[in-house]
Design a protein around this nucleic acid. Structure first.
Lengths: 342, 342
DNA sequence: AAGAGCTAACGAAACGTTTCACGTTGTTTG
DNA sequence: CAAACAACGTGAAACGTTTCGTTAGCTCTT
């Protein structure tokens, strides 16, 4: 079978403890170092992570729990996170819980049981009960993109200022003379989607523009949803001059629908969309966009969890929970038409 | 700290071995069973997977190595795989190697080291050297979507008959009277993309249609690539009446480009695309499509690895390597125009 | 009622590390 | 040159399981 530390010890004539010390970066006499390295080479030794984990209670593994894997927003973040963590020797275990709180609970349980050293979670459930096993074990937890009240003092977070983001969009519309502004929203109950709608409402209020429910079309963050919603809005609100589309997939759907219908933007309809992915690099006229800082989200999430891991303290003794709120970037494009004089 | 098997033994007055037996599904006297279950409940016992792994050399974990996470094709398959494996108590560890063979090598090394019980890999490297550590440890390996010669006798596979798929597409074009048929291909060196081009070439040959290089536009499987490639083909091949687009993302890009240019399909240009994802449900006229059986791919991959795990044998004693080749489904749509009389 | 034939419980060893509390070198200094 | 001190090496115990070879306890048969 595979070589063990004992084999290395035999080969080199050194003690077990010495090999272990070497492996963990301790100081070893030059001569011995070479002997050990040779033996490792010759025997193809690799440390047994089970034994190591058993002793140290550490797995060098971070669990990631997400609501779905088929979202560009999510996979982009995961890729960034993996990249950073790998550099520190951590692997990630991804659990896709299909937006099912029950599965999410199981996923956390499963991961904790598996001995992960920390958890990064974009929560599907609203309450946060699923985090209990991790909290009890005092594991670092980082929430991504969606807030949760429970265990607030124990979990770190990386959020995006969604309300402000859509506010900025509406302000832009208003500056350009729009007042009949539609919005294609996300699913009810999802933190980000509620925040984005909130921003929409507040912005209108601030500008003294009456809020009309008919302009608000809740959808489901999917391509198909966007496709259908824009059609519905166009059908039911003939006087609408601008639309805010609150995520990427729906924007994709909407653009396809508009092209199909021959509705030109910005001539016939002004658009602002969320997220700046491949699409935006390709669509002409260019889309005016609220770009979420996906890279930064991933970076912060990874670094937050790493910094907790480095000074392993109880949450009581450790720094209080950190919640980073990142702001979106408003990227002007050509998809908003000016209705007023400058 | 957390309760151990020993605590359960003390609480119940039973021996260690008995508890272990119970945990692993062995027979235990009714009375003892209840006692054990109560104790487990009371002490919140969960098995320590490190210790278990150390003893059994099994982690109940499958490593998945993929070239990128931001492809719908891949994430769909992963989701299916995870679902099935989870039902058998397995977790997945995903490593995205960014199409970098070096990183891929490291990923496999890493996973093997971590004690995964098997590997599912959509290879980025052509040679397959990266699989060595897993082969040496005699782990089940399942290759997905891309063939590799090396270690052929040791690895199972799930492939799609890509050559036949594009052949079917070209045949369809020909039946409808097309002879000036373009193709937007994938990156050179990628198995699937070569197979798809091969099918294109063979089909033309079979129908006695002269092959012209100008009709072949190699691209990169990306949205942007599709967008640019279709424009390029339209520019350089004014006589082209039909195009085969060999994956989903490029189709997306191409559709956007066509809409933008006001090129109508099927009137001005006939289209057949690969993969049937959200897009196809949404675009009008509907796209004629070569649908890859992503669900089945995932299912086969998961089941292959599971069946190897259940009868843990050397590859020599075990069944020979199984390579499943699935066929694509030709889905007629409205994007191919008939040029000839019926 | 006693022995055969089961089934279930048991104690101990082993898996491959890390770590602790000491030894043993080798080097420096007064 | 000896004493003192670093610096490095060491054996053994421990982490929490599973498993092996036995033993204990039960049921059934005669």
């Amino acid at each position: 079978m595979a070589a063990t530390i004992k084999d290395i010890a035999n080969q080199t004539g050194l003690g077990l403890a010495t090999i272990s010390k070497y492996l963990n970066g301790g100081n070893v006499r030059e001569k011995n170092r070479m002997a050990i390295e040779q033996a490792i080479e010759r025997l193809h030794y690799t440390a047994n992570e089970f034994a190591r984990g058993l002793k140290t209670n550490r797995s060098k593994t971070i669990g990631i729990v997400i609501p779905e894997l088929s979202s560009q927003f999510i996979t982009t973040i995961i890729t960034v996170v993996e990249d950073i963590l790998r550099r520190s020797g951590y692997a990630i275990v991804v659990c896709d819980c299909r937006t099912d709180p029950e599965l999410e609970f199981q996923a956390v349980q499963f991961l904790v049981n598996k001995g992960v050293d920390g958890i990064i979670n974009m929560p599907a459930s609203k309450d946060g009960d699923h985090l209990r096993p991790a909290v009890e074990k005092n594991l670092p937890i980082v929430l991504v993109d969606r807030m949760i009240q429970k265990y607030g003092e124990y979990v770190d977070g990386v959020m995006v200022d969604n309300a402000l983001a859509s506010k900025k969009a509406i302000q832009h519309f208003v500056e350009y003379g729009h007042t009949k502004i539609g919005v294609i929203g996300g699913p009810a109950g999802i933190y980000t989607s509620e925040q984005r709608l909130k921003g929409y409402r507040e912005a209108l209020a601030e500008h003294g523009i009456p809020m009309e429910e008919r302009f608000i079309r809740p959808s489901d963050y999917s391509l198909q949803g966007g496709y259908e919603s824009i059609k519905h809005l166009l059908d039911t609100c003939k006087d609408m001059t601008a639309v805010l589309i609150t995520n990427y997939d729906m924007t994709l759907g909407a653009v396809i629908a508009l092209n199909e219908l021959g509705v030109k933007f910005p001539q016939d309809l002004s658009l602002i969309s969320f997220d700046n992915l491949v699409l935006s690099r390709v669509v002409r006229p260019t889309l005016t966009t609220i770009a979420q800082p996906m890279l930064q989200i991933g970076q912060h999430a990874a670094h937050l969890v790493l910094s907790r891991l480095e000074n392993r303290l109880d949450h009581k003794e450790a720094a209080a929970a950190t919640v980073v709120t990142l702001s979106t970037q408003f990227q002007p494009g050509e998809s908003v038409r000016r209705l007023n004089a400058v």
